[in-house]
Design a protein around this nucleic acid. Structure first.
Length: 346
DNA sequence: CATCAGGGCCCTG
DNA sequence: CAGGGCCCTGAT
């Protein structure tokens, strides 16, 4: 267990010179406050109740702990709500076992800004749908919420792979086994978490070894996707500057990555909200109930659902559906939603 | 105890 | 373009 713990908390100003924060083997940097574009809903953005729990993060109202590997260095991040929806401020602290340069920090903050969509402009979306029959009330509840990816594209793909054809419990087991074998355990701020492995950390593992971690046939996908990243065939930074359809094509070319995974990635990782082209069977049942009050034995055809979303919510189909989806899972967190329980195999 | 399907995807015909 | 097979696991 690598300890990133550093007790001192001097409440320093933003971008304090790192030299003054150096500790023996680790330090905590007060990286100051991030000012997201308003409106910004801290908890609905920094926590997604529909995500399966994983060891790279922890959350409580007003705070998210998130591990991250940046330029090979394991980091512990802590985001704290220091504002309001209309006057948002997010306090960021960074734990590290090594000193890093101002240039490293600048790059890191830029990356975090992208991943967390801190500057997303929601004004047009909000204006269009504030008084909309179904979406209006949901939007009011979660105003300022963003879809996002807390980690890297590679890490997201690993999550997508362990999700496939598995129950939630099994996905959790697979990810934990992979983290324990290939990830970096860290402790900071009282949390014990894992920093997810980098492609190079798992490259030497054979398919047989991975199968030993009970990931089954997904072992092949993990190996092939990892190779694509190590070889440079896929480069997240490069892909960010490509068009949506080029991104889709590049992702689909990866072994073990199909339309369901890509649909999530285009929205969460690359921030495209204007196209929905695929609905998986379990989502179809949930949407059928939500939008047409139709049960799982008589779900609305996927084509009808897609057409409905296009008609109602373009050019923000993915954004609008994200709001409904998160609203549903937040509700489930606080009260029983019997029809939903029947559709979720834990 | 045996069978089955699960928060997909690949491959075949 | 439809459908069988795939690892493993808990539910039935």
């Amino acid at each position: 267990m690598t300890s990133l713990t550093f007790a001192q908390d001097d409440g320093g100003a933003a971008h304090r010179p790192l030299e003054s924060l150096a500790a023996e083997h680790s330090f905590r940097l007060d990286a100051g406050e991030i000012i997201p574009s308003a409106p910004f809903n801290f908890d609905a953005t920094l926590h997604k109740p529909d995500h399966f729990p994983s060891a790279d993060n922890a959350w409580e109202p007003g705070a998210r702990w998130q591990t991250m590997r940046w330029q090979g260095l394991p980091l512990g991040l802590k985001f704290e709500d220091a504002g309001s929806v209309d006057a948002p401020r997010v306090r960021l602290s960074i734990w590290s076992a090594e000193l890093f340069s101002q240039g490293f920090l600048d790059g890191l903050l830029g990356e975090i800004g992208y991943r967390y969509s801190f500057s997303l402009d929601l004004t047009d979306f909000n204006r269009r749908f504030a008084t909309y029959p179904q979406l209006g009330p949901v939007l009011a509840r979660w105003r300022g919420m963003r879809p996002l990816n807390y980690s890297s594209l590679y890490e997201y793909l690993m999550i997508a792979i362990v999700l496939q054809n598995a129950t939630v419990r099994r996905s959790v087991q697979m990810m934990r086994a992979l983290d324990e074998r290939f990830g970096t355990p860290v402790s900071y701020d009282g949390k014990e978490l894992y920093v997810s492995w980098a492609p190079g950390d798992i490259l030497g593992a054979s398919e047989e070894e991975l199968r030993g971690l009970k990931v089954g046939y997904r072992a092949k996908s993990i190996v092939r996707v990892t190779e694509a990243f190590v070889s440079g065939q896929v480069d997240e930074r490069v892909l960010r500057n490509r068009s949506r359809e080029e991104q889709r094509e590049a992702l689909l070319s990866l072994y073990g990555v199909g339309p369901a995974s890509v649909e999530y990635i285009l929205a969460d990782v690359f921030h495209h909200y204007d196209a929905m082209t695929h609905i998986s069977p379990w989502e179809q049942k949930i949407y059928s109930k939500l939008f047409f009050d139709r049960g799982p034995d008589d779900p609305a055809p996927v084509a009808d659902l897609l057409a409905y979303f296009d008609t109602q919510f373009a050019p923000y189909q993915m954004l609008a559906v994200h709001y409904f989806w998160e609203d549903l899972f937040w509700r489930r967190k606080h009260e029983a939603v019997p029809w939903l329980e029947a559709l979720i195999r834990l």
